[in-house]
Write a protein that binds this DNA or RNA. Structure first.
Lengths: 124, 124
DNA sequence: ATCTCCTACAACCATTTGGTTGTATGTTAG
DNA sequence: CTAACATACAACCAAATGGTTGTAGGAGAT
């Protein structure tokens, strides 16, 4: 299933990347785009390589980009990707809202006909 | 770090639960709250126990609740939790927009004169 | 009461994750 | 050039994930 131009795999990567507090913190701190990887690494109680991996996860998810600046690699969070993750959630919320609308519909119209809803066919 | 009443761990669980396509699909299909675990299990190319585990992950994340109905356990997605996940993203986006600084500013300084901007933009 | 269906849960297994250390390579400073 | 720093990446390890099968209990149906 595809949401807009987002494949399932990219949504997987997106949410997976967000499911770690260190990575969310890196995201927050890299909004300004002025921190290098080693600068970030100083902030956490783990090795440089570990932070490097976290940045790589964020990068693969498209949440962050790196920009060479001298011998440093500056990390910047990509706001569009955060927005993309939100849209994936919006889609689920929209479904729920659709249900509410339908219920409102049922309440508004006279309840007749006993078809209790087709189960919504195949998908995957 | 805590976002509202959300602990880091609960945000971890939230995003982790969302980082799997089968679970997202269960979420979408359980909006109506009329599918039992075994009914859900029929929809996926995996064992009943596997689907049961996926539901358990969603449940621990607060994204879903189960309601006994006879010998079946009906799964219903909890829209508030979806919304909570969105708020976690909103916080990062807000940071990007520099809103947090302004909000912190508003809280720090004596509240004199009107804020030139409503604190929360659209919510939808 | 018995049979069947739905659920729960334990044990097990392969793969991935999140961390480590070590090595190699490129870039800036002296 | 050489030294120091920033990065990249491989190899390794423990723990978590995502799947399996098997066993057991509770609730309806016959």
């Amino acid at each position: 299933m595809v949401v807009g131009d987002l494949t399932d795999e990219s949504v997987d990567r997106l949410f997976h990347a967000l499911a770690d507090n260190t990575r969310r913190d890196i995201l927050r701190r890299s909004v300004e785009g002025r921190l290098s990887v080693s600068r970030l690494a100083e902030l956490y109680p783990m090795s440089f390589a570990a932070v490097q991996k976290h940045v790589a996860v964020l990068e693969r998810a498209g949440l962050v980009t790196k920009e060479r600046h001298g011998r440093e690699q500056l990390v910047r969070t990509e706001p569009d990707a955060v927005h993309r993750a939100r849209r994936a959630l919006d889609q689920i919320e929209a479904l729920w809202r659709g249900r509410v609308d339908r219920m409102a519909d049922l309440l508004a119209r006279a309840p007749e006909a006993g078809a209790d809803e087709p189960v919504q066919g195949e998908d995957r």
